[in-house]
Design a binder for these strands. Structure first.
Lengths: 360, 360
DNA sequence: GTGAAAGCGCTAACAC
DNA sequence: GTGTTAGCGCTTTCAC
């Protein structure tokens, strides 16, 4: 005893076993409730555990079961409400099934993503959900299934990776939205994305993001169906921060060939675009029409309320987590995977272009 | 050898040691780079490791070092941008110091929080950051320092818990903001919070949240300094979901004693309040003034832009993580902890009350 | 510098 | 039912 102070060791099964006067194995069985244990023993063990304040060491448990009951989640930016909501979906679904979540942010940098995957694999998570920063650089993702752990992709697909992917059909919703803009009379439709790229966008260029590719494909198809060709000069990438987005917006809206409608690829971009439009003293939709991906609550509060492409983000999160856990537990795929689809919510930010008559 | 297929075991130090023709201990030393290892051995071990694709098992490592290099983070709702941003701060700071983050959502339910703490402790995280759902029920938080692991509180304090807490001084910013409203002529100032409570608010009532208490204290002080008494009937709790918030807003704005100004306790509430105000056909600030906690980007896009109380949320996250890691590593507190303060950003949502002359 | 061996706390064979 | 005995993959004495 003496001065029993300083660093107190956690109480272990051995301690409990001793106190309950049974073998370590029996104590472990009672505590982990598996195997066969007499009521008498179970009672004594549980009482002793309670008494001693025993708490299982999950690390030790994980070590010999090989299961950590932990999911690794790798997203571009948790600060972005899109991922915030998706993460909420993931953690909710995970908790429901007894799994925890280790979250890593990549800032949409592939290097950080590679590192994140390494760390999570080293930590022996049971599976991973990744929203890949790049649909092209995917060797590090390849390693996940190779290491025997399941992987589910969120939002974007990855080249050459045959894994379950939870995302909505971007091509068709993009097609539909573009049609809507075309019918309103727009021809000069700009698209702004955060996607990093060394070179400015040119038609037919290979893109790093399946998601953006699909959206552009949808737009192109809508144009071509009307016998029009799609204005590749209005696609702007590298819309990284607020400042660059304002700059892009100003450029897009200047000159004789200015855009008459702008599509923002996500909520963060939308914020800066709308701000820039207001700063220019322009009015939506009289001077410029506006459309954005993701339906956040604030989009209803602007004047006018914004027309958006709503994605079932929370459901995508739960779906991804459920799919992953299903794979981890080796169960068969759900009979019918309900397709997740985006939909266009027409509010007030799309109108006829100023000089519609010129074109139509 | 034979059909070396099926389940491939991960390669371990033992495998590497064998391949490099050294003892397991030496291989481990080279790999973990600690202890003394000759250049020759190190080289051979590293080469063998590379060759075999060795990856350390962090679980095993954690088990005998007792350090998991993982932080547990418990927040009310990651979907709330306030926590999204704080979490971003935490993960950024953690990553910078080589720590990972396990995130758990409590939905502001104390029961879920108790469970979350238990799970994280069982997983042997090195320390925890908790935004406590309740400032009163805190026995489970007590257990964290008792178990020998550091705890840092975020946003709210907890009764009887002497741990580092990262939050801004709510009483003074609330005082300042209330003064501002009073000077604009408001007397009927409502305050809406998500805080759960069995009974409606009454003056002097004990609240579950230190944060809300402080805010109300600040308001009260501002009123009293002007020789006025503070309208406790305008404090509304239990603003849980969009529907209840709209209902509260409608009530607050009806009748002869209607509120002339509304303060929303967080961004989620603000969204619904503003929407409800618009639905009622009222105009901000002509019909009702509005003030909210947290400065989100969208607050600049409404008409008029909203007057807000900006909190350094991201910095609170990084500060909390840094403080926690400092404690984990047993280092002394930073010489000067820079005080985090909120500030009032006056935009356009506060004006004179409709019937200001009646009061002044 | 190096290696053998003893754990970390738990689960899982395997006997009895 | 119960206890004994090996491990899981790593770190860490402790000799040499």
């Amino acid at each position: 005893m003496s001065i029993n102070g300083s660093r107190r060791r956690d109480t272990t099964v051995a301690d409990v076993a001793k106190a309950a006067q049974v073998s370590k194995a029996q104590a472990a069985r009672a505590l982990g409730n598996y195997g066969a244990v007499s009521d008498d023993v179970r009672e004594r063990v549980l009482a002793a555990a309670e008494e001693l304040g025993y708490r299982p060491n999950e690390l030790a448990r994980s070590m010999n079961t090989g299961k950590s009951h932990t999911l690794g989640v790798v997203v571009g930016d948790i600060e972005n409400p899109h991922f915030g909501l998706a993460t909420r979906g993931i953690t909710d679904a995970a908790k429901k099934r007894g799994f925890n979540v280790i979250l890593i942010n990549t800032d949409e940098e592939t290097a950080a993503e590679v590192e994140a995957v390494r760390v999570l694999l080293d930590k022996r998570v049971d599976g991973l959900i990744v929203a890949p920063a790049s649909s092209v650089e995917t060797q590090h993702l390849q390693r996940i299934p190779e290491s025997g752990r399941p992987l589910v992709l969120l939002d974007r697909t990855a080249a050459g990776l045959d894994v379950e992917t939870v995302s909505v059909d971007m091509a068709s919703i993009s097609y539909e939205s573009t049609q809507y803009l075309l019918e309103a009379g727009h021809r000069r439709i700009a698209f702004i994305s955060t996607l990093k790229s060394d070179a400015p966008y040119t038609a037919g260029m290979e893109l790093d993001s399946s998601q953006i590719s699909e959206r552009l494909d949808g737009m192109r198809r809508a144009f071509e169906e009307k016998g029009l060709s799609y204005p590749a000069d209005l696609v702007r990438l590298n819309a990284g921060n607020a400042e660059s987005i304002r700059k892009i917006t100003r450029e897009l809206l200047a000159g004789p060939e200015a855009a008459t409608a702008i599509i923002a690829s996500d909520g963060l971009i939308a914020l800066s675009v709308v701000e820039a439009i207001q700063e220019l003293g322009l009015t939506i939709p009289a001077d410029v029409s506006f459309l954005m991906y993701d339906d956040f609550a604030w989009t209803k509060l602007t004047t006018p309320p914004l027309t958006v492409i709503a994605q079932p983000v929370y459901e995508m999160g739960t779906t991804a987590a459920e799919a992953l856990i299903r794979q981890i537990e080796g169960r068969k795929p759900a009979p019918t995977t309900p397709a997740l689809t985006a939909r266009l919510i027409r509010r007030g930010s799309v109108g006829a272009p100023r000089a519609a008559s010129v074109f139509s």
